[in-house]
Simulated scan of single mutants.
Amino acid sequence: MSNQPDGLQIPIKVNGEARIVPPGLNIRQLLAHLGLDSGRVAVELNRVIVRKPDWDSTSIETDASLEIVTFVGGGAA
Results as ranks from 00 to 15, higher is better:
Ala18Trp: 08
Leu34Ala: 12
Gln29Ile: 02
Arg47Ala: 11
Pro53Cys: 06
Val48His: 08
Val72His: 00
Arg40Gly: 04
Pro11Gln: 04
Gly24Pro: 10
Val48Gln: 13
Val50His: 05
Gly74Pro: 02
Val14Phe: 12
Ser65Thr: 12
Arg47Phe: 11
Gly7Asp: 06
Trp55Cys: 02
Ser59Leu: 15
Val48Asn: 07
Trp55Gly: 03
Ala18His: 13
Ala32Ser: 12
Pro11Lys: 03
Ile12Asn: 12
Asp54Ile: 01
Ala32Tyr: 13
Gly73His: 00
Ile12Pro: 04
Arg47Val: 02
Phe71Cys: 05
Val41Arg: 02
Ser59Gly: 06
Asn46Ile: 10
Pro23Asp: 09
Leu8Met: 05
Pro22Ile: 13
Lys52Ala: 07
Pro22Cys: 11
Thr70Ile: 08
Gln9Phe: 09
Ile68Trp: 07
Lys13Trp: 15
Leu25Arg: 02
Ala64Arg: 03
Thr58Glu: 01
Glu17Ser: 11
Ser57Trp: 03
Pro53Gln: 07
Leu30Gln: 03
Glu44Tyr: 13
Ile27Trp: 01
Glu17Lys: 15
Arg28Trp: 03
Thr58Gln: 04
Asn46His: 07
Leu30Asn: 08
His33Asn: 15
Asn15Lys: 11
Gln29His: 13
Ile10Phe: 09
Thr70Tyr: 00
Gly16Val: 08
Gly75Lys: 00
Ile68Cys: 04
Asp37Met: 08
Asn46Gly: 11
Phe71Glu: 07
Gly75Ile: 00
Val14Tyr: 14
Leu30Trp: 05
Ile60Arg: 08
Pro23Arg: 07
Glu17Tyr: 07
Phe71Lys: 01
Arg51Gly: 09
Ser65Ala: 15
Ala77Glu: 08
Trp55Asn: 05
Ala64Ile: 00
Pro22Thr: 14
Val41Ser: 09
Asn15Met: 06
Val50Glu: 03
Gln4Phe: 05
Arg47Ser: 14
Ile60Leu: 11
Leu30Arg: 06
Leu31Thr: 05
Val21Cys: 04
Leu31Lys: 04
Pro22Phe: 07
Leu31Arg: 05
Ser38Asn: 11
Pro53Val: 04
Ala64Gly: 02
Ser59Arg: 13
His33Cys: 08
Glu61Leu: 14
Gly24Tyr: 13
Leu36Phe: 05
Glu61Ile: 07
Val14Ser: 10
Asn3Cys: 04
Ser65His: 14
Val14Lys: 10
Ile20Cys: 13
Asp56Cys: 02
Val69Ile: 10
Arg19Leu: 11
Pro5Ser: 01
Gly16Glu: 07
Asn26His: 14
Leu66Ser: 10
Leu30Ala: 04
Ala76Ser: 14
His33Thr: 11
Ala18Tyr: 06
Asn15Phe: 11
Leu36Asn: 03
Arg40Leu: 10
Gly39Phe: 03
Val14Ile: 15
Ile10Tyr: 10
Val21Gly: 06
Thr58Arg: 01
Gln9Pro: 00
Pro53Asp: 06
Gly75Val: 00
Ile20Phe: 15
Asp56Tyr: 06
Thr58Trp: 02
Val21Pro: 04
Gly16Tyr: 09
Gln9Glu: 13
Leu36Met: 15
Asn46Trp: 05
Arg19Ile: 01
Pro5Asn: 04
Leu8Trp: 00
Glu17Asn: 12
Arg40Gln: 12
Met1Ile: 13
Ala76Phe: 13
Pro23Phe: 02
Pro22Ala: 15
Gly75Gln: 01
Leu25Pro: 00
Leu34Cys: 09
Asn26Asp: 15
Phe71Met: 14
